[in-house]
């Protein structure tokens, strides 16, 4: 069964065409690494899957249907995470706010909900975060809390938008491991967007590479090639493999490194580790 399916779909954001006539299908249980330059539409694609942005042409199906906003089958970790860093609220109440958070009335935490929160926190190794204030958590801990939240309610599809941003190299690996473990166990389909391919190589089943209005889905060997990426970047791209790592170069420079420094210019990636892995 296809979990996400695009059939000649176009997605437009304002006047900009993010995806033009894209067709691909993501199968049940796949771990998809979503890559591509900044502005290629990784976030926009996820918002379309969430039903927040209808395609301007063609067909987009999620679980075989037109995506609908608030689908409980989808877990989501947004990229623009406005977690107030000085918020003095404990992790438990923070997570609880998302349970049926769209309903009117006053919040109340049923015993079953409390148990589910505890279980999910334990799943990502973050049980102690329930009683700690967000303001006292490190970036890695906050991220784990958000990851736990996205798994709440046992979703069948997980959309993780740049979950590694703002984590140092060690915590990035831990986060990837946790996602892999949980999703394999529960058979969850994952769309995991990231800046860097190499960390995900051992984990992902296929790569969805976005760029230049196009989308290419395939194995690493199929997608990470000079001809394919040159089209997506609209530039001459070289792909160099060394020691199990793959480097995507544009005019001799690593595009991921270029993207990273670019990201900083936009005020993202607090505490980002620059010199890792290369």
């Amino acid at each position: 069964m296809n979990v996400v399916e695009l059939d000649h779909a176009s997605i437009t954001l304002g006047a900009r065409r993010v995806l033009a006539d894209a067709s691909f299908a993501i199968r049940d249980g796949e771990f998809i690494g979503v890559l591509g330059p900044n502005g290629a539409g990784k976030t926009t694609l996820m918002r379309a899957i969430l039903g927040l942005l209808p395609p301007s042409g063609g067909v987009l199906r999620v679980f075989g249907n037109v995506p609908r906003r608030g689908d409980p089958g989808i877990g989501y970790l947004p990229q623009a995470r406005t977690v107030l860093p000085d918020l003095r609220m404990r992790g438990l109440d923070f997570i609880a706010s998302s349970l049926d958070g769209e309903r009117w009335g006053m919040p109340r935490l049923a015993r079953a909900d409390r148990a589910m929160i505890d279980d999910t926190l334990a799943l990502v190794g973050a049980r102690d975060l329930a009683d700690r204030a967000l303001s006292d958590m490190s970036g890695g801990e906050r991220q784990r809390l958000l990851l736990a939240q996205s798994l709440m309610g046992r979703p069948k599809l997980l959309l993780l938008d740049e979950p590694l941003i703002s984590l140092d190299a060690r915590h990035q690996e831990v986060a990837i491991d946790v996602v892999r473990k949980v999703c394999r166990e529960r058979g969850i389909t994952v769309l995991f967007s990231a800046h860097e391919l190499n960390q995900l190589i051992g984990t992902l089943d296929r790569v969805l590479y976005l760029g230049n209005g196009r989308a290419v889905l395939g194995t690493v060997d199929e997608v990470i090639t000079a001809p394919v990426l040159s089209k997506l970047y609209d530039a001459d791209i070289e792909v160099v493999r060394a020691g199990g790592h793959i480097f995507v170069l544009s005019r001799g420079r690593d595009v991921e490194q270029v993207e990273h420094s670019h990201d900083h210019g936009h005020g993202h990636g607090h505490g980002h580790d620059h010199g890792h892995h290369h």
Binding site: R47, L50, L52, R69, G70, Y76, P78, Q79, A80, R81, T82, V83, L84, L87, M89, F94, S97, S98, D100, G101, E102, R103, W104, G105, M106, P107, Q149
Partner: peptide
């Protein structure tokens, strides 16, 4: 306040997610 409290808390803490869930 009681009538909007639940979505208010959700929208205050996590606007992006709240929007995705239909708040």
């Amino acid at each position: 306040l009681a009538a909007i409290m639940r979505p208010l808390i959700f929208a205050s803490l996590q606007p992006e997610l709240a929007e995705a869930k239909g708040v």
